[in-house]
Amino acid sequence: MTQARRCPRGSANEAASAARRIVPLVALLVIVLWGCSSKKPETNAGANAGSQPGLGQEGLGGTNGSSLSQFQKGTLGQGQGPLSDIHFDYDSYTVRPEDGDILRANADWLEKNPQAKVQIEGHCDARGSEEYNLALGARRAQAAKDYLQTLGIAADRLSTISYGKELPLCTEDTEDCYAQNRRDHFAVTQ
């Protein structure tokens, strides 16, 4: 039963910067030290979690127009921006014929704003495994990227990201709601 629980000493910043280095093939290896708090008394299931600081308190800021930063601000889905969303059928990543006009309009805007770069976000509805949906969202974002490239938009202006089913515009279990959530959103990044 005897379990030693040691608390790391010294400055977290010091340790973090000392440990920060580039490793070939591995890219950046960042070591972050947790804060160290005394162990909370035993609680039963479902009680509040310990107030121990968590790992990596990052995530503020970043891509301002992204759905994630909107979600952080509580404004997800408010204000469309200059580019319009397209939508997908269930478990599909094929651009619908009727959404071709939207993509052409988005391409026109990108041509008129040659400095602008766009992050294409793939989103999914609430059904199915989180991970499968994350991969499906990546595929949806790629589908729009491919389409915009065929319309002449340079690949280096188009990045992709998937949010899977994590950032729904609505949360009801209805076909209407699912259809709204199966989307590509186009976030202008600069």
Binding site: A45, Q57, E130
Partner: peptide
């Protein structure tokens, strides 16, 4: 979060206002 199997002693591992999964 981590806890015992029975859900006891929950401890939060991450603390960032984004999305943490899997």
């Amino acid at each position: 979060y981590t806890s015992w199997l029975d859900g006891g002693t929950p401890v939060r591992l991450t603390d960032n206002p984004t999305i943490n999964l899997f």
